[in-house]
């Protein structure tokens, strides 16, 4: 056996050490930020913190939660993530179910397949999109964060391929019993594909939580922004002109550990769903991508 040879054993030790090092390197920046967020102001500002907090304090978190902008942005983010995911999954699943029918059952299938493929590969660009959102009156509306994202062609394809792998015998039995298309969808396809739905919902949820550009482009005032947009403006660009804050708050926001705390709070929901996500996604991705 190859793995008993001395040279392979040497390789194996080096390999394991190397991969452990790489994987630790991947998360070290996050650990560092977390440590900074829990450190005292002076230690953080003079760059003494490595991976453990110095002068442990929860002060930066307390200050962050005193900020009204931050609280309202968190609320907007939670709302958009929940509503956006729920509505998006319904639209996606209904469409995926229709597209998973054969040509015999659904004559116009080819047309609709191309209809959705085209929007996946051709994009009109930033300016025409902006003009349209303006025309339909969604500028400065919460719904601009949700409605344009309802159709996700990629998720639709994954879901469709999953539906197609469900044995047709189930359909036929239901048709014999006199079930309508919608009944087949709701009573057979939905329950059977719960794991796939859970996976895609989590991906959509993370996508919504992370999305920031639409908020910046379409929403004028900071109190309507989701958390990602607010963070982008105050932590990354450090532009405080739109948030309307007083000098005292300004000083607090430029504090390194407060910034770190805000970044960490934005990471928190993702870290919370990550164990769930991780259990499914390897299977989920492979699942939709392979066809017979």
């Amino acid at each position: 056996m190859y793995y008993k040879s001395p040279s392979y054993r040497t390789f194996s030790y080096f390999n394991i050490a190397f991969l452990i090092l790489i994987s630790l390197l991947c998360v070290m920046p996050m650990v560092h930020i977390f440590a900074v967020s829990l450190s005292g102001k002076s230690a953080a500002d003079s760059n003494l913190v490595t991976f453990l907090p110095i002068d442990f304090t929860l002060d930066s978190y307390a200050q962050t939660f005193k900020n009204d902008n931050f609280l309202s942005a968190t609320a907007v983010s939670v709302l958009r993530s929940l509503i956006g995911t729920a509505m998006g999954m319904i639209v996606t699943m209904l469409a995926a179910f229709s597209l998973s029918r054969t040509h015999l059952e659904f004559k116009a299938r080819t047309f609709y397949v191309w209809f959705f493929l085209i929007i996946m590969i051709f994009d009109a660009g930033l300016v025409p999109h902006y003009m349209l959102i303006q025309k339909v009156g969604l500028v400065n509306s919460f719904w601009v964060l949700i409605v344009p994202h309802l159709v996700n062609v990629w998720n639709m394809i994954l879901m469709m391929n999953f539906f197609r792998a469900i044995p047709k015998d189930l359909d036929e039995a239901a048709i014999v019993d006199g079930a309508s298309s919608f009944k087949i969808f709701a009573s057979i396809y939905l329950p059977v594909s719960l794991p796939a739905i859970a996976t895609l919902s989590l991906f959509t949820l993370v996508g919504h939580w992370n999305s920031w550009f639409d908020g910046m482009l379409y929403l004028r005032t900071a109190d309507q922004w989701p958390l990602a947009t607010l963070l982008q403006t105050i932590v990354v660009v450090q532009d405080f002109s739109k948030t309307g804050i007083n000098p005292e708050q300004l000083e607090m926001l430029s504090n390194r550990s407060v910034k770190a705390a805000q970044i960490f709070i934005a990471m928190l929901p993702i870290l919370a769903v990550y164990p769930l996500l991780q259990r499914y996604f390897v299977k989920g991705i492979v699942l939709g991508a392979v066809k017979e």
């Binding site: 991947c26 920046p29 996050m30 760059n47 992370n210 390194r256 990471m267």
Partner: peptide, 30 residues
């Protein structure tokens, strides 16, 4: 375990990672 750690950054947005990088890579950063 290695997979769990290396997949994690994929799920963070560039706002978060950008914020981390700005702190990490600044002149007086880590």
């Amino acid at each position: 375990s290695i997979q769990t750690l290396v997949y994690l950054p994929h799920f963070m947005s560039w706002v978060i990672l950008g914020g981390i990088l700005l702190d990490l890579l600044s002149l007086d950063g880590f």
